[in-house]
C-alpha cells in the first residue's frame, strides 16, 4: 500500500493544530464536530467576522465529507461515511485540511471543478454562485452544487488539493483551505 492514512494524519497534527478528527461522518458526527470547533474558536476569542468565515467554510467542508466521504472496503469499519479534518491556527491565518476517499471515476469531475473555481476572481466567483443558486437543480445527494463555490468565496483563497493513490478503486482526496 502506497498511502498510509495514519501517517498522513499524524504528520498534519503539529503544535498549530487546534482540532483534529478522523472517523465516521454521520449526521450526529457533523453536529459534534461543528460544536467542538465552535467552542474552541469562542474560547480563543476570535473576532466575530473571522469566526463566521471559518465556521461557514467548515460547515461546507464537513458536510462535503458527510455527502462524499467513501469507505474503501479494506478500511474495515462498520460505517459508510468517513472523513478527516484538521484545523490549524498558523498565527496570521487559519488552515482547514480535510481528507476523504473517493472512487477513482470521480476524480475528473472534482479536479475540474476545483481547478475552474481556483481560476476565478472574487467577482467571478460571486457571479458563478448566483448562477448556480438560481439553476434549480439539486444533486442526488441533496447538495446544491454550491459548496465548493461557497468555500472559495468565503475564504477568498484558492483551494489547495491533492489526489493520492490508495488502491485500484479509490483515491484519497485532501483539500486545504486557508482563511
Amino acid at each position: 500500500m502506497n498511502f498510509d492514512l495514519n501517517q498522513w494524519y499524524e504528520e498534519k497534527i503539529d503544535e498549530d493544530a487546534i482540532f483534529d478528527y478522523k472517523g465516521r461522518v454521520e449526521d450526529e458526527d457533523v453536529t459534534r464536530i461543528l460544536n467542538s470547533i465552535e467552542r474552541i474558536l469562542k474560547a480563543k476569542d476570535e473576532s466575530p467576522k473571522i469566526f463566521k468565515k471559518i465556521f461557514n467554510v467548515l460547515i461546507e467542508l464537513v458536510q462535503n465529507l458527510h455527502h462524499h466521504g467513501e469507505v474503501p472496503p479494506d478500511l474495515d469499519v462498520d460505517y459508510t461515511k468517513f472523513g478527516v479534518l484538521i484545523l490549524r491556527d498558523e498565527g496570521m491565518q487559519y488552515r482547514i485540511s480535510v481528507g476523504n476517499f473517493i472512487k477513482i471515476d470521480g476524480l475528473k469531475l472534482i479536479r475540474d471543478r476545483i481547478d475552474q473555481i481556483n481560476t476565478l476572481s472574487s467577482e467571478e466567483t460571486r457571479n458563478l454562485y448566483r448562477i448556480i443558486l438560481n439553476n434549480e437543480q439539486f444533486s442526488e445527494k441533496g447538495g446544491g452544487g454550491l459548496g465548493m463555490v461557497e468555500i472559495a468565496r468565503k475564504s477568498g483563497n484558492n483551494m489547495e488539493y491533492q489526489f493520492i493513490e490508495y488502491n485500484a478503486d479509490y483515491l484519497f482526496l485532501s483539500i486545504d483551505v486557508v482563511i
Binding site: F55, N56, I59, E60, L133, E136, G142, G143, G144, L146
Partner: peptide
C-alpha cells in the same frame, strides 16, 4: 446567523 449552501436553494 448561518445557512449552508443546500439551505440557500430552499430559501430561494
Amino acid at each position: 446567523e448561518y445557512f449552508n449552501t443546500s439551505s440557500s436553494k430552499c430559501i430561494l
